[in-house]
Nucleic acid binder design. Structure first.
Length: 497
RNA sequence: GGGCCGUUAACUCAGUCGGUAGAGUAUCUGCCUUUUAAGCAGAGAGUCGCUGGUUCGAGCCCAGCACGGCCCA
């Protein structure tokens, strides 16, 4: 027995296992795969709606399959509810219809088992359309009992670790992940309709770039080198613009080696897109269109209710500079904004902890996160980001110390980040050099020098604007979810034991 | 990293002042041929997250740890 962990099996599961063994010994196929389905539940329901008279007169036969989610047993009859991918239907089983042998078999089945059913539709006394079962076949025997049907599965830990149980038990969870799929499909359609090309770029990168974040490190044995899981696809997508793909997008999984919270999962889904001959203001217009289109398609409205707020996604959205937002929304004296020490003083007095004391631009954006961001409930574009916090953005023609960049905030959270791309390779090299200096000075997340990317720029990237949108956060917004774990099928969890 | 809360039957949850562990659903047995969380009668089911401590005695008090939730950083 050494090395074996003795797990005490609960009574209820032990009884199921005993039943399982008994059924197996009776030569019954517990896992057949020869049942053929003629209709889904929804197809049958559509026929009920469309031509109930035909169903009554002609009694056509249906073959359906699904998981039993409820069983009401009487002496010689049974009502069951079963579910396939399209919906739920009631079936009625009578001993005098399916015969003694089949009825005895059915008595051995449990909620959760899969069955194949053949029969006709009829209406019960209460008028509910129900499948009158003529033939019945077990399609999959289960050993573990499902959670109780009335209260369902509530324990968040179990819902995340065993998402399949959440999906079986909770209609809301099923609905949410269908919504997520539709949101992503709508985004894809939108960009395809706007003549963008969908591409795939490396997830394993020799130099992680495109964002300020800590990467996961992995190792390639044959090459004998470390590689990094991407923190963003940005620098590869812009290489494609250099290559002549003037409009590209990637719905990408990216990875950041940071803390886990209701807003952060180590791997997350992002949309990035790049459009040549466009500016950051063009992308602001495009994003307003995108969100309105997706929201309308998925929720039926551009007005959504999120937590305690009603959010209007129909554009145009408010556009305001970082400086003005700090003064008007954050209540900071405009005179302080040019003075780093004065700002740090203000932060200290207001009880705002400033962990990183970088340069003025860093302090300003930190302060913004604390005093302005939570107040940006309605969609708001913030513009006028300093060059030093925007190492990949084009300088403003009017004010060289700020960039042609915006961030989008909705519901008090950053949803998107976009800018006119820096396509001057000389300026880009200088920006990277400054980042490397910051890194040497202790900023772990500052960019690394990427000579290969600069070489690409030296071959010439047309004027271009690009943007990244956090898909998980967008899904949260459109599904009224308060935690990122609610919108990711298998969120990262610490292993148990 | 810090604070607060949680972890008891398969699921959802009670558990008083520290005195041998409770309910509903589910399960099992019996009855029941139109139920809607079906009903009636009966039965079984627990390493009270883990490890220590205090105590005659701990689900309950104390300490540490694990996992989870919320908030803060």
């Amino acid at each position: 027995m050494t090395g074996l962990i003795m797990v005490k099996t609960s009574e209820i599961i032990q009884k199921r296992k005993d039943k399982f063994d008994t059924l197996k010994q009776s030569k019954l196929q517990l896992f057949p795969n020869d049942f053929r389905v003629s209709h889904t539940v929804n197809e049958i329901k559509a026929l009920v709606e469309k031509s109930p008279e035909t169903l009554k007169a002609d009694s056509p036969s249906f073959a359906v399959a699904g998981r039993m989610v409820a069983i009401n047993r009487f002496g010689k009859t049974v009502f069951i509810r079963f579910r396939d991918r399209t919906g739920q239907l009631q079936a009625y089983i009578r001993k005098d219809q399916i015969g003694d042998e089949a009825y005895q078999l059915f008595k051995q089945l449990d909620v959760g088992d899969f069955v194949g059913l053949g029969g006709e539709m009829f209406q019960t006394k209460t008028g509910e359309w129900t499948l009158f079962v003529k033939e019945l076949q077990l399609l999959c025997k289960t050993i573990r009992p499902l959670p109780e049907k009335f209260h369902g599965l509530k324990d968040p830990e179990k819902r995340y670790r065993q998402r399949y149980l959440d999906l079986i038990m909770n209609a809301d969870a099923r609905k949410l992940f269908v919504q997520r799929s539709r949101i992503i499909q709508e985004i894809r359609n939108f960009f395809l309709q706007h003549d963008f090309l969908e591409v795939e770029t490396p997830m394993m990168q020799p130099i992680p770039g495109g964002a300020e974040a800590e990467p996961f490190i992995t190792h390639h044995n044959a090459l004998g080198m470390d590689l990094y899981l991407r923190i963003a696809p940005e620098l590869y997508l812009k290489r494609l613009v250099v290559g002549g793909f003037e409009r590209v997008f990637e719905i990408n999984r990216s990875f950041r080696n940071e803390g886990i919270s209701t807003q952060h999962n180590p791997e997350f889904t992002m949309l990035e897109f790049y459009q040549a001959y466009a500016t950051f203001t063009d992308l602001m217009d495009l994003t307003e269109q995108l969100f309105s289109t997706v929201s309308l398609a998925v929720t039926g409205s551009t007005n959504i209710s999120y937590q305690d707020d009603t959010i209007d996604l129909a554009g145009p959205w408010r556009r305001i500079t970082l400086q003005k937002a700090l003064v008007d929304i954050g209540g900071i004296d405009a005179a302080l904004l040019k003075d780093k020490d004065a700002l740090l003083n203000f932060a200290a007095q207001s009880g705002i902890q400033m962990t990183k004391t970088g340069r003025l631009g860093k302090v300003i954006t930190k302060l913004f996160d604390a005093v302005v961001e939570p107040k940006l409930i309605q969609p708001t574009y913030i513009t006028g980001y300093p060059v030093e916090v925007s190492p990949l953005s084009r300088r403003s023609d009017h004010e060289p110390e700020i960039t042609d960049r915006f961030e989008l905030f909705i519901g008090g959270r950053e949803i998107a980040n976009g800018f006119s791309e820096l396509n001057d390779p000389v300026d880009q090299r200088e920006r990277f050099s400054q980042q490397v200096e910051s890194r040497t000075a202790g900023d772990q997340n500052a960019h690394l020098m990427d000579h290969d990317y600069i070489e690409a720029l030296e071959y010439g990237m047309p004027p271009t604007a690009g943007e990244g949108i956090g898909i998980d956060r967008l899904v949260m917004l459109l599904t009224d979810a308060d935690s990122i774990r609610e919108v990711i099928l298998f969120p990262h969890m610490k292993p148990r034991d």
